[in-house]
Design a protein around this nucleic acid. Structure first.
Lengths: 112, 112
DNA sequence: CGTGTAAGGAATTCTGACACG
DNA sequence: CGTGTAAGGAATTCTGACACG
């Protein structure tokens, strides 16, 4: 057990100043996109925001869209779509496992 | 071109407070291990230390060793060894590429 | 040697608000 | 709607030093 934390990409550990440097966005913009639900940083005990590399990628995506004049509301919809995609990809994997398990333990069942 | 930055693990973006939480080490300890050259955080313009996930792994390694009573000098040596290993692993990959390139462009060469 | 702590200062981040368009 | 900015405060980080063992 204990995989060596492959999910560094999703660990929320980067503070907003660093995110600003990495994305080129101002603190104001980053906080505003949070207000509009485009991102959801973690908040530590004292209220400081912490972001993941994934958040940073999302922010760079947002920056591009905004440059093209896309409004945050639109961007939000697009982001939700991408989420769906990621989820269904996960589902594929889950279902493959499920299928195997089902095949293993299958038993006759009435449609009740 | 432009691989999507697979090297998140090595990006120095985490501040010392977060590193402290993640490793369980005190700020004092983390700074001291730097003094002893066991780690080398990045320093931003204003002098604030920034660590990578790799640094964090190293620190957890150090914590274990210290609990076993190993001195920082010893730990330093061990760390240098691991570096060597990583380098030679990289070398293997490089050499494989080199080999292919050489095979492609090989030309007779006098021993000068 | 490795770590704790108090000290003073500088840099960071937070929120709510007013401004402009 | 999206972003800038000044405001006041709280939390973070930094360094050098004294302490203990």
């Amino acid at each position: 057990m204990s995989q060596p934390d492959l999910s560094y990409k999703d660990k929320k550990v980067i503070s907003i100043g660093t995110v600003s440097e990495l994305t080129g966005l101002t603190l104001r913009q980053i906080r505003y996109y949070e207000e509009r639900k485009l991102i959801a940083p973690y908040r530590n005990e004292s209220g400081t925001r912490k972001y993941s590399f994934t958040d940073i990628e999302t922010l760079m995506d947002i920056a591009d869209k905004r440059e093209d004049g896309v409004q945050t509301t639109e961007i939000l919809k697009e982001l939700r779509l991408k989420e769906k995609k990621r989820e269904s990809e996960m589902d594929v994997k889950k279902k493959m496992l499920q299928g195997q398990l089902n095949a293993q333990f299958k038993q006759g069942r009435g449609r009740s």
